[in-house]
Write a protein that binds this DNA or RNA. Structure first.
Lengths: 339, 339
DNA sequence: TTGTAGGCGTTATCAG
DNA sequence: CTGATAACGCCTACAA
């Protein structure tokens, strides 16, 4: 591997000058410049990013921690982040936490040793101290999908409460009154907000909240299936169910299928998170679409200007709206109805 | 950020000794050792991985290029890779190529500058020269999902031919004779192999290949939908369709739905790639499951022993079997039938 | 059992 | 307009 010295030698100049044409940070006469460029080309020289990082104290690398890249919701976010960062010549170290606090902690440490320039993460919520320390030590951090109490870090999330609310309102509007909810793991902000939205919608319609109708699906397909079992075992059975994330929606459908119930005739469903699959099947699943890609893009945007621009003193919280995608799983295909 | 010097000073020893307790590469007396460990803890010292990399010429970082992390198939592979590498203290830089050769090339260069210790990629097939150069220059590379002509690099893939063959055989066994195929982009090995498998199955049953029944879906949902349109417009209509990847299967179902056809009554379907969604809907989609996670794990395994072990002289090609997951989209639920 | 010193490939300061 | 030179933080002969 040729170094900057080799290039300098071949071009008959000093490494200094080569460095300057590389970074463009001072004027170099056209003559020497072309000579140097020539040498670079002939030698196939590529600047060593590691050495550069050591000197410049920036790695052009960003860390990202998500629960599980296998979850399409996070995959979308990551894609948004990656696209935005690539444009600005940053690259991304991807880590999965599996929601395990210790894993998150170890990963935080690993990334810090690797001297990442910034961090985007879906926080488990358990390592606030470590995050605070990292942030205090100067690492730009952006939270995505979930907020931390106090909102002391830049955060990009979806209006989960409003999302759940329109989901449940949609059900209420078509006459449902016994509406089950499969909610996610406790302790993460999305779960609380979506539950709040569920209750708000019921309140709007003067329907009392029945605790038995709210089951915890642990944010997983398996948990969602179990929660659905519990819901379907109730008498009278709920006439509709709201599943508060993509995985739990899968679980719900698995259970519905197992019970040989027809959707929407026997039970109406609204899910959370959209996938192309949801539209391809019969019935298409009415769902609350999160702007997941945008979430990533915005998060990367915030991070970028903390890394390169003049960082604002106080943390920013960006809340993106969720939108109802109406399909067949709630029955009649009316798009709007009065009242 | 404290450096190794600070630790040394605080512990009253030389940086050398600190370094040695860090790497454990030579004996240090228990006394000084604990003193040093103490200093490390008090200062919250973390070795700078960049400096270490510059010196040691290894970054403990691996690059990975996939077409699109948003595709669950690749997300699974990435997950397999990440799990395996994390165990060995490597981290992963994730890149998306979008199948664009130039993007792949730029990414290759970027990763090479970042001095990754190894590379795992789903090759577009267009940058053979760059790959050869990188490999020759000593970078361990493992191909995943697709092979390159000549198999001159370590490769982990699925037996696509066999997969497609059992898919189509399954259809033939239940009496279908006019079987459409939606195949992927040309130029990638998976497409060729799956097509071969399709033809082999037909041959087994003495059915002639009808070119009109083979439509190119470009490996995308949109392309798959278009291909399905073409197939459904045929007279007589094929009684079954084999879609050669997950995205094209979505497209196929979108089109089936648009035509208000019932599956399996009006048309039988076998897809490729499995998702939890495929089992949750009605009808469940019979499909060929690829061991995607394993693909990643095995690829990481090969890479690891090229990076750390004694690399075998000649490239290894690992072929994993695909398996038929029988569900309702092909009609009757018979698991086996004679002949 | 421990320390000294040189260098990994860059960049930035200071001279010229 | 261009060049020496000194770091960046760590590791590892070599020496003691």
């Amino acid at each position: 591997m040729p170094t900057i010295k080799d290039v300098a030698q071949r071009a008959g100049v000093s490494p200094t000058t080569v460095s300057y044409v590389l970074t463009g940070s001072r004027f170099v006469s056209p003559g020497t410049k072309t000579r140097i460029l020539g040498a670079i080309a002939e030698l196939n020289y590529e600047p060593d990013q590691i050495a550069r990082s050591l000197r410049a104290k920036r790695t052009m690398t960003v860390g990202m921690i998500v629960s599980d890249i296998t979850n399409p919701f996070y995959a979308d976010i990551v894609r948004g982040v990656e696209d935005m960062l690539r444009d600005r010549h940053y690259s991304l170290i991807l880590c999965n936490s599996d929601e395990a606090p210790e894993r998150e902690l170890v990963t935080l440490q690993l990334l810090s040793r690797k001297k990442i320039d910034g961090l985007i993460l879906v926080a488990t919520g358990a390592n606030v101290e470590a995050l605070r320390a990292a942030s205090l030590s100067g690492l730009p951090i952006v939270l995505v999908d979930r907020r931390l109490p106090g909102d002391w870090l830049d955060t990009v999330l979806v209006d989960d409460c409003q999302g759940a609310e329109i989901a449940v309102r949609h059900l209420l509007q078509r006459g449902h009154r016994r509406i089950g909810a499969i909610v996610g793991r406790t302790g993460i902000s999305t779960t609380d907000s979506r539950r709040l939205g569920y209750e708000a919608a019921l309140a709007e319609f003067g329907v009392a909240v029945d605790p038995a109708l709210i089951q915890n699906g642990q944010s997983t397909a398996r948990g969602g299936a179990a929660a659905a079992q519990a819901l379907l075992a109730l008498t009278p059975r709920p006439s509709a169910i709201f599943a508060a994330n993509n995985l739990m929606t899968v679980g719900l459908f698995l259970t519905i299928k197992e019970h040989s119930l027809r959707c929407p005739q026997d039970i109406a469903v609204v899910g959370f998170d959209d996938t192309v699959w949801l539209s391809a099947f019969t019935p298409g699943v009415t769902t609350i679409a999160q702007p997941s890609y945008d979430l990533g893009e915005r998060a990367a945007g915030l991070l970028l200007d903390r890394m390169t621009g003049q960082p604002p003193a106080s943390p920013r919280v960006i809340v993106l709206p969720a939108v109802l995608i109406e399909r067949e799983s709630c029955g009649c295909q009316i798009t709007r109805r009065a009242g």
